[in-house]
């Protein structure tokens, strides 16, 4: 299998009035051809920031401080905005969180997607319309719906339209940032299935960002766990669930209730996530970790392969 996306030692920080916040720090991973990678972590852990780094859609006060993002054999970190515009859409595309805001309420949904295609590809409007019909069928919407306005869509349909739009220019890589958070359970389930099927069918690679590890468990082949801007564990989904190594991953798994299996008592993670203006010097999870030792406080653990294909950043487990 080929590596499509490789991230090496990526770091990103925000400049705020109170100082510099390192939202993504020393992140490395790779996604192989056809794979879906799940990125899980709490809010503020840097998972959305990481997605924005890969799209290079960063707010003004944010900058990539170091590292490489190698997509399709090329490092995109030094690329200019004009070059990026071509890579976005055709190469990397994103399904955003708030489906409501991504569509303009005064235009027909179909026309909005057609506009997007015509703007990026050198084809006629009629061809584009035909393409949108195909996309609608692909995401499970009836093509007649193209003539409707966003407010005439239900939440689930809107999210499907957003997916269609993200697929409009045949991207190789799709980033889905909490695409189902605002949806109800039943609709969420349908959308997750849809995304999973499309990803396999079109043989794209995907990065699925979510705070909900159970959603990731159902959609992804690999899972990366983020905590306070660091990648702390990265492994095959089955390997991670069978044998979570990092104390935070373990804690995360035992803090989720399930409707299956015997009823277990939930074990909360003590404390709160650190303030990234002034993160702990050593391991960023150290203050909340029940296995912490002296070394954890002083030395940053390396992110290394502890078993075949299972990456980890922890002093204690190795």
């Amino acid at each position: 299998m080929d590596t499509v996306l490789e991230i090496k030692n990526l770091g990103m920080s925000y400049d705020t009035t109170e100082g510099s916040v390192s939202a993504v720090d020393n992140v490395s991973f790779r996604i192989m051809n056809g794979e879906a990678m799940g990125l899980v972590g709490e809010s503020g852990c840097g998972k959305t920031s990481l997605g924005m780094c890969i799209m290079k859609l960063l707010p003004e006060n944010a900058k990539i401080t170091n590292g490489e993002i190698i997509f399709d054999g090329e490092d995109i970190v030094p690329k200019t905005e004009d070059e990026m515009r071509m890579i976005r859409w055709k190469g990397v595309s994103m399904i955003f969180q708030a489906a409501m805001n991504a569509l303009n309420p005064v235009y027909k949904v179909g026309d909005q997607i057609i506009e997007a295609i015509v703007a990026h590809e050198n084809i006629k409007k009629e061809e584009a319309r035909e393409k949108v019909r195909e996309l609608y069928k692909l995401v499970g919407l009836s093509p007649e719906r193209m003539e409707n306005y966003p407010h005439e869509y239900s939440g689930g349909m809107r999210q499907r339209a957003i997916i269609a739009m993200a697929l409009a220019c045949d991207p190789k890589f799709i980033i889905a940032d909490e695409p189902t958070t605002a949806l109800d359970v039943i609709v969420q389930d349908e959308i997750i299935d849809e995304i999973k099927n499309i990803q396999k069918k079109l043989n794209m690679i995907m990065m699925y960002i979510s705070h909900d590890i159970s959603v990731i468990a159902e959609t992804c082949d690999k899972i990366g766990v983020m905590y306070a801007g660091n990648f702390i564990e990265y492994a095959d989904t089955f390997a991670l669930f069978d044998n979570p190594l990092h104390p935070y991953t373990k804690a995360l798994m035992s803090s989720f209730p399930s409707i299956e299996g015997p009823k277990k008592e939930l074990k909360p993670v003590p404390g709160e996530p650190p303030n990234l203006l002034n993160p702990p010097r050593g391991c960023r999870f150290y203050p909340r970790c029940s296995y912490a030792e002296e070394i954890c406080r002083n030395e940053r653990p390396e992110f290394i392969e502890s078993e075949s294909g299972h990456f980890l950043a922890c002093h204690r487990v190795i």
Partner: peptide, 24 residues
């Protein structure tokens, strides 16, 4: 509703029942 709840276990293969009431 139950069949739509995601399970934090990748091996949980469950029969899924959908309500396809709304026109999609």
């Amino acid at each position: 509703l139950l069949s739509a709840v995601p399970i934090p276990d990748p091996r949980a293969k469950r029969e899924r029942i959908r309500i396809r009431g709304k026109v999609v």
